[in-house]
Write a protein that binds this DNA or RNA. Sequence first.
DNA 1: GATCCTTGTCATCGT
DNA 2: CCACGATGACAAGGA
Length: 769
Amino acid sequence: MYLKKYFTEGLVQLAILLSLCGLRVDVGLEPYLPSHEMMLGPSAGITQTQFHNLWNHLDNSHHRSHPKNIDLDGFASSRRLLGWVRSLDRLQVPNAELETWLVHREQGTLPGEHHSQPTPLERAPVSLEGDRAGPALQPGDILRNQEGEEQDEADDDVNMESPAWSDRSPREETQRQVLPNRQTYSDPLNEEGEGETGDGLEEEEEEEELARTSRSTRERKDSAGYRESAQNDEDQMSLSLQECLRLLEHTFPFTHQPSEEILPPNGGAVDHERLSAERRPLLSPLIPSDLELQWQDLLAIMEPQGLDVSTPFPSNLETDGFSGAIQNPLDATILSIYPSSLNSHNDNQMIYQDVHLMEAALPPASLTPQFEPSGTNPNLPMIPPSHLLVDDEEDGDYGLPSPLGDLLEDATILDEMSLLDLALEEGFSPEMAARLEEEESEEKADSDSGLSLDCSFSPASPCGSESSCYSSSSTSSSSSGSSTGSLYSEGNEQKDEEGGINLDMELEMTIKQEEEEGAVGGYYTSDVNKIVPTSYQEEKLFNGLPWQEHIGHDHTYNQAWPSTPTATGKASMKQSKYSSRQRTTKPYTRSSPKRFAEAELWSRDDRRARSLKIPFSNELIINLPVDDYNELLANHRLNEQQLNLMRDIRRRGKNKMAAQNCRRRKLGALLGLEEDVSGLRRQRAWLRREKQEALKSLQEMEQRLESLYQEVMFSLRDEDGRPLDATDYAIQFGDNGSVTVTPRRHRTLPRADSKAGKKHKDKKCDESK
DNA sequence: GATCCTTGTCATCGT
DNA sequence: CCACGATGACAAGGA
């Protein structure tokens, strides 16, 4: 992480230098540009926040990362960037160029930033030392940044474990870390000799930090509902507005820089800033890290609205004529959050003028005149989504749902949830089913937004899989089951009990028939209501039941529903080639017959359940614990057929999962055995090599022994002093270690044989000995 | 059409 | 005895 940070900062430096040289620095982070977020009103964020809070009630384990909190973090990086730019004040900077780059940079940084920004203590020395060496350090980090946040998300949980909508905000911890580090880190900066920092600055700012921290903590407790706590917000506004403005004062490069003359003519703000600077002599204009810290704190303060914050500024700012001229999202945030106070403040002129500098940097197309001075923008739907969609597509690849997509998804999920509640309360209605299907198809089309994926598609997600499955099954049950029931079940219930084949055939015929007719029946709802005396409380149990604990497990029963767009997600598609094959091999149009073609693909049990009007989804039937299942059966008056079918469904479903697990296990065991086999083969080869080497060494030893024997024999003499013939004598080794030379008993009679032949024979004899 | 693969289902056994 | 999981065997469907 530190390396990455260092490299990123070094890259920032490099980019700044290039910009100073007049080169356009484009790090290719445009896909992450959150400009569309600036176009959305705060209501989007509000909705999102509300939704996520609501969602957190359902499941806290999801949406560990949301792009919006990253956007907020991007502000901090932009602040750091600005600080660094100001640290280059000695240089003659073509300001417009630099500002343009800043826009790119700060937008591009957003995806890669994390909550746990390096503490100033860590960062400050780096900024001093690693300015030059930084860019060459970790080229992979920038790639990671460009590849999107998902990687980062996966890499460091610590960084991304703080979704802005989660109740638990790690920024608190971050701030707690920041505070003690502060004193130490700011010292070297002061020593660096920007020289304008007063001694009392740290203390003052530290106090501010503390105040901000307490405020932010307090505000964070309020979590997303800042609409409800408008009074608190006003208090915080009054408290933090000065901080914001002071930080802004630091932010603008032309404020304290000696290179004011190079600024555009509207640098008249300089006077304001000078005045403000004189009014606050303690503020150091050139402490990037301090500023960054301040901005981080400020962001931390605003984090509870984090999701909201990213969206509101456009509507507030752009209306005023300088739309889109937001120098950075934070400025806009400030403006949006404290619009009234800002207008009354002295320094707002400065802000506006500085904002004008950016008009050239941002394309006018992205400027949407929607100003709501009230601060709360309820006019979210009025936001023109034209360019947002483009961003949406761009972001989609990186799992960064666009605000529009978020909105759609939020609305979708909210609607779905409300519909579910409604369904649970009032039974299943075909309208709900149709709506759900439409929304789900929208989600599918919208696809890549992580929200929908996480919450409704991932089979591994506890909440997502089950709730979605439940909803999907409800949907399917209501939609198709209704039609089936309308045409069939009334007359076929008796026959169905007899044999499933008959039923299946009839059901399929029915489905085909309905597919031709394109009819959507509506019987199921009423029947369900009849069958199930749905007390809402009782049904509501199913949403928050303990059986949901079992849902996140790695059962792949969902795979049995390849055609239902609700229950099948990308993950399940990846898991099941079969499913994909089925999907691909049976292409159906997206028109109305689609759901009937899908119904044709539904499982037999599902169809049976629908035909018998069983008011529960198969997932529910299968995954409920025994107690809950029995309770379910006891609470609902079901006839024999339904009970039998439910029992069969449960048995088959469980057995299906068991079979899948078994096969998975078997496959794993097979793989393990294969590994064992390969290991054993390696071991055998090694042993063979060892054996060969042993044989080789043995032969060498034999050869040496033979040569030694010959040498000894040649050195021996008989009584006459003649050398012994090795063919006639042999060396005997006694048990007690004695060595004796004895004449060979079995002499080969034909001495005419060649010596070689004799030697061979002798050798054999010797060897045999 | 034969073959292989995947998946669902049933029967059976053990816990 | 029942619920449940594991597993072999078989069938169906698709490639």
